[in-house]
Design a protein around this nucleic acid. Structure first.
Lengths: 162, 162
DNA sequence: TCAAATCCCATTGAGTCCCATGGTCACCCG
DNA sequence: CGGGTGACCATGGGACTCAATGGGATTTGA
């Protein structure tokens, strides 16, 4: 499964009073090249305290990935349960939101809570998907490589928020 | 994975007031032979204080390498986390920039900082990728072979900057 | 009917495009 | 052989486009 168009790059955008966020144009262009949707799917990230986001077409792919994982580890203890849990997280704890003509989405309240989002969000391309972080959370996570934290700090400075 | 077209050669170009740089024509021609993109991907070099650059197709290759790594070690402890970290570094700490009809890119401010770039850049073809250096940094790095530094000095002289 | 969500328009500043210049090199023809 | 000519490349500058964001107006749904 080699996806042709990959998400990459980073950006720090503001959340306005209405809860709106501009999805960076370079991410939107990948979404639109992968399909013709002007919609993104938001989910809780399985490893980090952030949100994972992708285009609707990728959601289907994700499903088959989970299936494949199950088949691989079927005989193992607890495989079924792990499978059920993964599926729940991937699909029940997710929401599809459209972006408008200026490229903004409205972050649903639940997702804002799950991702610990306040008034600034850091977008990070990760190839097949992209992530949406509260920059403070990222800086506080010790599993995050230092080079990436540098990117985050740089983006904050750029906005005059040392 | 033997790439057919390889980056080679060197050039010293200027960065103008807007932060624009001409990508040497001999590098662009490799990019366009590898795929039909007119964009390059910039990333911090993992070893040296310079930037690493390649075409989008090579980025996809990099991605599938990481995927394969994951599948190999899926059951292992911490495999998932290592995978996440690799992906973040490969994609979030990089930027894709298009070059215009005259072959120029705009060096993003973050990359200029990461690569210690000021007003002169040295391009070095290194096979699968190419590197972008501040010539001063290269001359000051004691891991760089003297022969290569000579190339750098030669390019500087050529421009009347002994 | 009220609040929330969507749409529409305005601003501004960064990024992109387009055209022009000058230099170098290769090629061609006298 | 030598000068002319044209192509291509690096570079400068001005004009313009578009992305990110703010605010008001309109619609939708409980």
């Amino acid at each position: 499964m080699a996806l042709e168009h990959l998400f990459q790059g980073s950006a720090l955008n503001g959340v306005d009073a209405k809860g709106r966020v501009s999805v960076p144009a370079f991410l939107r262009s990948v979404i639109e090249r992968r399909g013709d949707a002007r919609t993104i799917v938001l989910a809780k990230h399985e490893t980090f305290a952030c949100l994972s986001a992708y285009d609707p077409a990728y959601a289907a792919l994700k499903h088959s990935k989970i299936e494949r994982l199950l088949e691989k580890s079927e005989q193992e203890e607890g495989a079924q349960l792990a499978y059920q849990q993964r599926n729940l997280l991937a699909f029940a704890v997710s929401e599809e939101v459209p972006y408008d003509s200026t490229g903004r989405i409205l972050l649903p309240a639940m997702m804002r809570r799950k991702g610990g989002i306040s008034d600034l969000v850091l977008f990070l391309g990760v190839g097949e998907t992209f992530q949406i972080w509260n920059p403070e959370t990222l800086l506080g996570d010790d599993r995050i490589p230092e080079d990436l934290k540098d990117v985050c700090r740089y983006r904050l400075e750029e906005r005059g928020l040392a």
